[in-house]
Amino acid sequence: MRAHPAVGDCLLALSLLFVDLLVLLSQARQHHGQPWYVALPLDVAMVAPVAFRRKYPQVTAYVILVLSVPHSALQLGIGSATASCVALYTMVVYVGRRQAALYVVAQLAVAVLQMWARWAPGITLIIIVLIFALCWVLGEFVGARQAYHAEVEARLHLLETERDQAGRIAVAEERGRIARELHDVVAHAVSVIVVQADGASYALRSDPAVAERAVRTISDTGRQALAELRRLLQVLRNEEVTREPRIPQPTAESLEDLAGRVRAAGVPVELSIEGEMTGLPAGVSLGVYRIVQESLTNTLKHAGPGARAQVRVRRAENLVDVEIVDDGAGKARALVPAPDLPGGNGLIGMRERAHLFGGILQAGPCPGGGWRVHATFPVRLDP
């Protein structure tokens, strides 16, 4: 009945018609009442609008009101009274209080006129008012229940939409994080490999030992890059992530290894670490590592031959301070006008990493030449 409400309305109309037909047969046996060819069509017309009460509630209600006048006047059964109550209930539930109140006034006016024409006692009007009041209260209850269910369904739909939106945002953020990680890993590895390959090509005949070390550095750098790329790609493959152990991400404690690889690539790096890097939040520790890695990668690519880099990492009570300075290609890079630059993908990624944890990043040319990157991360000391 709930899945097909029209079926329920049709069954209700047929039930009212069946009762009126029983009244008609009873009157025919007692040889009084209206002829069947008058009563039967009027009975059918009286209950037929009930089948359409949900689709056309207001039209159906006033059609019932009009047909109830001859039906009740000819005393053809309970169809007129029952259909009028159903119409009032339908008006309250599906149309509204204002239209239902106007309909009640019209029904009472018709009832008063019919009682006046028949000289019916006043108790009948009281009964009619009580029945209409009962139908009104029932309609209010059902209408409130339907409104409550509609509100619950709307909220559930809104929650599903918000959940889907949150999922899309999470996916977008994860893709952005993976893109930053891929950029840092690939840019650093390729820069080291290119520098080492160039050095190996020059030293291949004159100093085979240096060429051999360069080729070994290329091999180690490539393996490390492949391992990190495999870890990042596993994030996109849930099944493989559950079956294979994850490779740990680099942290601030791995800065010595990073500086060693850059030194092997041909850029002297002076690393200074003040304070313990252990106990940092994972995101902050990874951010420190990636910012240093990206800065040294830019030194490899843009600083030119003979450049040197200084990396200072200091952990205070409530923050981690990172500074990377190189002295290469000062004149060419000093043409950049402002310290806070839009930058390429690398600089944008460093700034996003810093801002993600409430930090600040500044990058730009040094007054005497070279390039400086300075980042601060607020952090709580672990108890």
Rank of each mutant, 00 (worst) to 15 (best):
H149C: 05
E151P: 08
E151H: 14
L156G: 04
H157M: 05
L158P: 01
L158W: 08
L159Q: 12
E160N: 13
E160L: 14
T161A: 13
E162C: 02
E162M: 06
R163E: 06
R163L: 14
D164E: 05
Q165M: 12
Q165V: 13
A166P: 04
G167R: 15
G167H: 15
I169L: 15
A170T: 15
V171E: 07
R175K: 11
G176T: 11
G176M: 15
G176D: 07
R177D: 07
A179R: 11
R180P: 00
R180K: 06
E181D: 06
L182Y: 03
H183L: 10
H183Y: 15
D184C: 07
D184Y: 04
V185I: 06
V185E: 01
V185A: 02
H188K: 03
A189E: 06
A189I: 04
V190R: 13
S191Q: 09
V194Y: 08
Q196C: 15
A197P: 00
A197H: 04
A200N: 06
A200L: 07
S201Y: 09
A203F: 14
L204G: 03
S206C: 03
S206A: 09
D207K: 07
V210A: 13
V210W: 12
A211Q: 09
V215P: 02
R216T: 04
R216I: 01
T217C: 09
I218F: 11
T221I: 05
T221P: 04
R223C: 00
A227C: 01
E228S: 08
E228R: 10
R230A: 13
R230T: 05
R231M: 00
L233F: 11
Q234Y: 12
V235R: 13
N238R: 15
E239M: 05
E240F: 05
E240R: 12
V241G: 07
P248I: 00
Q249F: 04
A252L: 04
A252H: 02
E253F: 06
S254P: 02
L255E: 03
E256S: 14
